[in-house]
Design a protein around this nucleic acid. Structure first.
Lengths: 234, 234, 234, 234
DNA sequence: CATGAATGAGCCTTCATTCAT
DNA sequence: CATGAATGAAGGCTCATTCAT
């Protein structure tokens, strides 16, 4: 393989790590993909604009043709992560029929599917909020709140219909939320393992990887069972 | 309140956020306390040596009378976090009697007690490992491995004695581990709330705080119940 | 004279102190010229990047648009000094005819011409090698070795043809080498004296200056005679 | 050999590099010896007070029990170097009889003996004058001037007696001075080579070392012959 | 004497960002 | 769009020096 091909491979090594970027200009998309890889591994302040430009094969100044500032890039990443995650969970619940247990199961499965498929985005969009400015942080906080209300509604309906048994839903929700969120820190999607592009993923997390044991489906099913137990499903 | 009193208050505002620092020189201890507060909020690369010195009331150069480098400070923080956590869980298991269920319950309770009492240390020691150098990272990785073996032993013994039902323990352990770890991101110890020193804690997490509802005891009990369910306790 | 004119004068005060810099970008060239002046006077470690930037009229950060590091600047200076010196001596020998005595005389004359015309470069490129990294030092050492072989060849040929009388050439070569090298520490080119830009030259050396007495030609001739005597020329 | 013995060896590794330090307090003497080694290799600004303290086995603060400042240490080194050198050459001339040729020969021999026996002191006391403050520099400049007058007198007397032929003595003196001074950069005393303490000497110079070929005596004789030729001795 | 901790200035270098080309 | 050069601020760290112990 020529050097040039090698370079191209490197630049495209992060393709697929982000959902919902098909419509974006290629330059902007590559910067976002490089960013989610680097930020998930080293944190927002551990990544420089020069790093991202270098990973994308351009000069640092070109960064500003696509983003007004470094913070704005992070904001777009957080926005993307929260929006796609919300859409994913919402669609799952709405398509799950009327039984609250089935709705909960669908929500947990979708939640895990997202975290396991886009772990770098999950990490970045949840761990680096401190670096957003006040206005952007407020917008993201609103998104998080909205996402919570939907699942709360499912649980409350399940309670009132008698299929769940958790009069005070906040504690079980925190447990299930933490359990599902954490998947992003140890699961790596099969595509990363199969195609050998695992290098795009933080090395630290790689030590936790168990690709030979668990498919996404398996984790989704198992965790959904745990969640139903925690909510005291009938 | 005079300015001087105000300053002293500020410098001591972080007292109590770290376990096992009683024997340390006061200057070193204050730097560690300032660091765990700042790092938990903004990440390792978001905190400068000048920040820490300023929070401690000394010049940046004085930092190097206590630590060989900024990375070494992080290493000491990670070491402290992992060692104290391990000691805490180990002592709980060893003092819990012979029943595997009681051992598991004690382990989960201790785990949560630690994360809820020292959330900033938990966050720092678990989220910033990427900033350690290779040698230090290896040492911490060893510590993490050792910590895992103890709980694994409890679960396997519970399985062979028929009081647990989880032939493949890795998945439930990941779920319970994630659930308990995440407590550090939303729970804030009562002392922080009562004494108004909440400012020492990351603002972002404050939005999740539910101090009026849950004591540490309550969370420990509830999560232990969840864990026993997940492990299929008889 | 206006301040502006004064500033421009200051910035250009070092023009002419370096050979072979015509093709370089102006910013890089000025930094090299400022560096050779400052390093010859105060030594590599006595000169800061801020000093050089200030002498050149730019910010310290701009230095790194032209050089990867301070050490790299020194390396370029050493490379320049050794290459130009070697070229100078080599061309003189090759253009001197077949008589070994004429070749030696030409070599000594060229050697002194270079040291007297570019004394600051000679000092910098010969006195600060300790500050080069291992790789760069090795490269320069190779250059020095190559430069020595040419003169050795002249002496050996003179010996075998019976026009020189020094069976063990190393000792006379060390004497002549030291004698010629040292010229850079006391001779200052006439241009420096006439145009009053002597301030570009180290003050210490200025106490040795004898510009009213000796032209470069005079020193070249006299030292060449000394050298021929030392080598026992027929 | 025990570690302790090893350390002591290291601390004493520089013994003998300085003349005239027998009467000094041991702490001060060791600092001077460590300094001449380090300064000759890396230059005044390349050596820190901490370096010297560390080489001597004490803390940096202890340095100030012996010297008022770092500059004062350099001054003492320069003073030592120039005084001992002057005494050495003067005694040689005065003990050489009435013949100007014998006086010159003795002066050159003494000069080289000093540079070859204390090369690190020669380098330090001649290359780092720029780092002295104005007052100290003036004192040293006076010393240098005095040293020159003695040799000038010898040459002038030789001229008027008809045994030398150099009506304008400055140029031959510059040549001989440079030739002799430079010995300090390539000759290393046999003691250093024999006892394996060569590590106390700058590495760069070591590449020039020819210990197997030349004794000090040999260099003294040979260079004295060169000098007599240069001065046109009858 | 020796020390550990402290200091303010300064070190080399990188930061995010701008702008003329 | 992309770039190379520039900028002022800030980064981690070392400097020579001081001082109470």
């Amino acid at each position: 393989m020529t050097d040039k091909a090698n370079d191209r491979k490197a630049l495209e090594g992060a393709a697929g790590v982000l959902p919902g970027v098909e419509g974006l200009a290629i330059g902007k998309r590559r910067l976002l993909e490089a960013a989610v890889v680097a930020v998930a591994e080293r944190g927002y302040h551990g990544v420089s604009v020069r790093d991202l430009a270098s990973d994308t094969g351009v000069q640092a100044a070109s960064f500003y043709a696509h983003f007004g500032s470094k913070e704005e890039l992070l904001y777009e990443l957080c926005l993307l992560g929260h929006r796609e995650h919300h859409r994913c969970v919402r669609d799952a619940i709405l398509g799950a029929g009327a039984d609250a247990r089935e709705q909960l199961r669908a929500a947990i499965r979708a939640n895990i599917w997202f975290h396991a498929t886009y772990p770098l985005l999950t990490i970045s969009a949840n761990s680096e909020l401190h670096a957003l400015n006040a206005e952007h942080l407020a917008t993201i906080a609103d998104l998080r709140h909205d996402a919570g209300t939907l699942l709360t509604a499912v649980v409350e309906r399940g309670n009132s219909e008698g299929v769940f048994d958790c009069p005070e839903p906040w504690l079980p929700m925190s447990a299930v939320g933490g359990m599902c969120l954490r998947v992003a820190w140890w699961f790596r999607p099969a595509v990363a393992v199969d195609e050998g592009t695992l290098s795009a993923y933080p090395r630290q997390a790689a030590t936790w990887l168990r690709p030979e044991d668990y498919t996404i489906e398996r984790v989704m099913d198992t965790y959904a069972d745990y969640a139903l137990k925690i909510f005291g499903a009938a």
